[in-house]
């Protein structure tokens, strides 16, 4: 997994160079165009990305992707999508409760207290005190 970041940088850099030269222009009307900085960063991304990728492959150091990290990120995405239905604060409260109970094997009372407590704290601070219009979801 330590090869992923340098590998992603190579096509990104290529896209930034192509767009910088082709669409925004390097030098327009006696001055740098909107494409100059993108081209510079694209060249750096490709140069450094390729160097780092080759170096990582040669070093033969393989870092496997942690299964817990995958489960956590997948759960986080599901919870973020569920906010459209049940609202942000309840979704986050349920997430904390479930994560602590089922993945961290914490006692149910402790998980519930932390889930409800965090949700209540966020609601009081952001919704009541700071008047942030947090998503309420379809259930209102």
């Amino acid at each position: 997994m330590n090869k992923v970041a340098p590998f992603i940088c190579i096509p990104l850099g290529l896209y930034w160079i192509v767009m910088g030269i082709g669409k925004y222009g390097l030098w327009i009307s006696n001055g740098p165009g909107g494409g100059l900085f993108p081209v510079v960063c694209g060249m750096l991304l490709i140069g450094c990305g390729v160097t780092l990728f080759i170096r990582t492959v040669k070093a033969k150091v393989h870092i496997p992707l942690d299964k817990r990290a995958i489960v956590f990120v997948a759960s986080a995405i599901v919870i973020a999508l569920s906010m459209y239905v049940i609202g942000m604060i309840p979704a986050l409260g349920i997430f904390i409760l479930c994560w602590l109970k089922f993945f961290e094997k914490q006692p149910v009372v402790k998980s519930a207290v932390l889930g409800i407590g965090t949700a209540a704290f966020l609601f009081i601070v952001f919704r009541l005190l700071l008047k942030v219009p947090l998503p309420l979801g379809l259930l209102g």
């Binding site: 986080a76 942000m88 952001f126």
Partner: peptide, 22 residues
Amino acid sequence: AILAPVIFAICVVAAYTTNNSM
């Protein structure tokens, strides 16, 4: 174990607060 999901919740609300946007 406890800190991670709580920080995640704060991160989500804090990111949303910037522009009130999902």
